[in-house]
């Protein structure tokens, strides 16, 4: 509970901000890097398709501080994300999880690629069968005649 009061008072004391502010940053560069990386995956809930790292909305600033606060408490990246999803729902993640519509999003690209490849192979094979059905095999004399012609062709310049 004390933590919430701390966050709330911190949030209230701030004026409207613009993207990441120097004063928000964590002292430890490694932790700050993690915070930046996480911020890029979180949606500014009141913006149009903007992550909290680049947004100048007040809410984005609140979330940036919240992420840093969780990291400061020793949360792992996954725990920070879980915490935010528990609070704001899946909407906060710019990279959907493997659930529901999100699962379709992840499965779709490989499945479409496989379907495309299978479709192309199938069409190619079918076309060859259809075209091949009409062919009549060459007789022996025709084969030797063809080979002779091909050999002659190779001696002539290939340009």
């Amino acid at each position: 509970m004390r933590k919430w009061i701390a966050i709330a008072s911190l949030v209230l004391s701030l004026t409207p901000a613009f993207a990441v502010d120097p004063s928000e940053r964590l002292a430890d560069p490694a932790l700050e890097d993690r915070a930046r990386h996480l911020s890029e995956q979180l949606r500014c809930l009141v913006c149009q398709n903007q992550n909290i790292d680049s947004s100048d909305a007040q809410l984005a600033k609140d979330l940036r501080l919240l992420v840093r606060e969780r990291i400061g408490h020793g949360d792992s990246d996954q725990q920070v994300l879980d915490f935010l999803v528990a609070r704001y729902g899946d909407f906060v993640l710019l990279k959907p999880r493997f659930e529901g519509t999100g699962a379709v999003l992840w499965v779709l690209p490989p499945v479409l690629l496989l379907l495309g490849a299978a479709g192309a192979l199938w069409a190619m094979r079918r076309r060859r069968q259809v075209a091949g059905a009409g062919d009549v095999a060459l007789s022996e004399t025709e084969k030797t005649a063809l080979e002779r012609l091909l050999k002659d062709g190779e001696n002539v310049s290939r340009d």
Partner: peptide
Amino acid sequence: APLLASAMGGAISVGAPY
């Protein structure tokens, strides 16, 4: 997808990381 999800009562975001 976000439109589809909201039609089904959910809410997801699909952004640059995806």
